[in-house]
Write a protein that binds this DNA or RNA. Structure first.
Lengths: 227, 227
DNA sequence: TTTTATTTTTAGTCTCATCTAAATATTTAT
DNA sequence: ATAAATATTTAGATGAGACTAAAAATAAAA
């Protein structure tokens, strides 16, 4: 059984590169877990000794199948608890992350399974992130950042990348939640901001930073009447 | 904020002597947290430095008001989670303890409060133990071990002292759960076992060990018809 | 292709919570 | 009341996990 710290490192690596092949650098991990590069090196050695990652000094790491499994378990627990906090206890979606950060380290397979059932086997958490199943697999349609949309494209918000509470409150205020329909009207060349229509109603402007933090499932492209 | 270990020690002291006056010995604590007496001494010094206990070397410790508060918080969280696990997730009352042992260390006042509300502000956990309120206070009628009952006395089971799963399963099997009505028919002098009637129906025999682990709220004494 | 800059690793400390063995206090028994 | 038994505390060590400062390796720039 992995310690709390080990789990946090595994989760960080998973987040940076869920696939067992892609490599992640020491620095990226340090930034993700908010610690020094030296501490990361220490931990990487330990995880490598436990065969949870493959580690080539100076050339980054990647998860082994076993490490991937453990990391996905942590993420699964995290997201299930987020659903619980939001749906059952009524927490706002910007509040659930920090508490789930603690709950994700509770070790009890029976608890995770029963929680999953109690929640009705949810597919995504309140932010739209997909919940790995018992085997660590993630299913469902994959999403792209809204920032890649071309003029006239439309789709459904499936999640967000940036989980900062202030950003989430901004989204909340404008109805930009998972499930909302988005139509990308027009992109401004000079600053990459875009005009969008939300749920067929109000239109608004999103900065490049905002649009690249919103994940959307492509649904098609509205024909331009002028063409 | 107390660490996980500190919380476990505070909880242990609370369990052995909830009142701030009564003293608890190093050895008792060592047995309760399953560690060596030397380790206990180390921790007692730390807790004393933090003014959570008053510690007189060689003469035991007691909780300060502040320590009592923290300990009661841990117990409150533990018992609320037990209710959640039993009532919402369907765990058996003999399974909930170990999981709650982990959940009790989640720090979030908002979470505890909302959980409390979600559960309908329960007064007791599945074992019948009373749940401290937000201020650390415990209310409700106090109970005595069934073993002190005299012939003809009757009462209501309110909880158990021994939480061993095997004992809980034994109680479960005989309907000896919190809320059950018990009448003590007759005590056997030679081994302190007793014959009891459960919920006005079946009668059975309890050993001294069993009857002293069952807590009962006194309701009165049935008049002996022969007298 | 050297030099410079950046990233990563090593070396040496620190705190927390634990341990064992030895020393000291306290309690119990003779 | 003194000796024996028991309980508690001190001393010294260990393993996690983190840190800073210095050394080494890699990447970028001239």
């Amino acid at each position: 059984m992995a310690t709390l710290s080990e789990e946090n490192y595994l989760k960080a690596i998973w987040k940076l590169a869920p696939d067992p092949d892609a490599g992640v650098s020491t620095g990226e991990i340090a930034a993700e877990v908010k610690t020094s590069a030296a501490s990361v090196t220490d931990m990487l050695k330990k995880l490598a000794a436990r065969k949870l990652i493959t580690y080539q000094p100076y050339h980054g790491v990647s998860l082994t199948v076993q490490g991937q499994r453990l990391a996905a378990d942590v993420v699964r627990r995290h997201r299930l608890w987020e659903v619980f906090l939001h749906e059952k206890l009524g927490f706002g979606w910007e509040e659930v992350h920090d508490i789930a950060e603690q709950l994700e380290h509770i070790h009890s397979e029976a608890l995770t399974d029963r929680l999953d059932r109690f929640l009705g086997f949810p597919k995504t958490d309140p932010h739209g992130d997909r919940i790995p199943d018992k085997t660590g697999k993630i299913s469902g349609p994959s999403a792209v950042p809204l920032s890649v949309f071309n003029d006239g494209e439309y789709g459904i918000i499936s999640g967000v990348i940036n989980h900062a509470p202030s950003f989430l409150l901004f989204l909340e205020k404008h109805g930009l939640k998972p499930g909302a329909a988005i139509e990308m009207k027009e992109r401004m060349e000079f600053d990459d901001s875009m005009n969008i229509r939300v749920n067929g109603k109000k239109t608004m402007t999103l900065s490049r930073d905002a649009s690249s933090s919103i994940l959307v499932i492509r649904k098609g492209k509205k024909q331009n009447r002028k063409s």
